[in-house]
Computed example of a mutant assay.
Amino acid sequence: MNYLAHFHLAQQLASRSDLDHQGLLIGGLLGDFVKGPLQGQYPLSWEVGIRLHRRIDALTDSHPRVSECLQKLPVNYRRYGGIMLDVCFDHCLSRHWHKLHPSSLNHFSQDCYQQILVHKNDYPRAANRQISFLAEYDVLNMMDNWHNIEAMLARIAKRIPRETPLSHCGPELAKLLPFIEQQFLKLYPALQEQLYQEFYEAPDAKSNYTGTNKTD
């Protein structure tokens, strides 16, 4: 999942539990930039959000429906298929937003920027730049436009030193989008429920908050 899905899943979990909304959102950003064991270098609520981000990635990457999507890609795309699907899933989420969230995508996006930007100077430099970029160009609110998806993949390609298909894979992904969307719509509700069970309902859920989660 990419940023829109990470932030949405964080907000949904917070709305169903007593977990800190802002902390989960911040962790949804920092999960891409903070590596290794979490040992209290950030506020506890942020680290819960980072753990949530990592768990979302792990569950998604290992899910059979994601594997089915990857198998549909041309062979030379599959090395970067995870990146392609992450961005496509955000596109699918934005297309079905009205079914999955009570407020508008614009309202949700502006709230995310506001909640996360307030502490941006406490983030790793790359995370500070990333949230500033997302807010300045209102990226979260534009994921329903396929041209923006292609542009995002092209920007990611520029950050990778080797040659990749990311800058020109848009037309091929567009052909596969109906299948990807179908898989996403089955995967996403199940992912929401599993996260809620793991982070709130499970008897040992507190291990996700206190740093004893062995998946680190």
Rank of each mutant, 00 (worst) to 15 (best):
L4G: 11
A5E: 07
A5S: 13
H8C: 06
L9C: 05
A14H: 01
D18V: 12
L19V: 03
I26Q: 15
I26H: 12
I26Y: 02
G27A: 10
D32G: 04
F33T: 02
P37R: 15
P37F: 09
Q39I: 08
Q41I: 01
W46P: 00
E47M: 12
L52D: 00
L52Q: 09
R55S: 08
I56L: 09
D57H: 05
D57S: 09
D57M: 13
Q71L: 12
K72W: 07
P74S: 09
V75E: 15
V75T: 12
V75P: 02
R78L: 07
G82D: 03
D86H: 11
V87I: 13
F89E: 02
C92H: 05
H96F: 00
K99Q: 12
P102M: 09
Q110N: 13
C112S: 06
Y113M: 03
L117T: 07
N128Y: 11
E136W: 08
Y137F: 15
V139L: 14
N141S: 15
D144A: 15
I156W: 01
K158E: 06
T164N: 01
P171R: 04
P178S: 13
I180K: 03
E181A: 10
Q182E: 15
F184P: 02
F184M: 02
L185Y: 05
K186T: 12
L187P: 00
E198Y: 01
F199M: 08
F199V: 03
A202P: 02
A202M: 01
A205H: 14
K206G: 08
N208A: 09
Y209F: 13
Y209M: 03
T212V: 05
D216F: 06
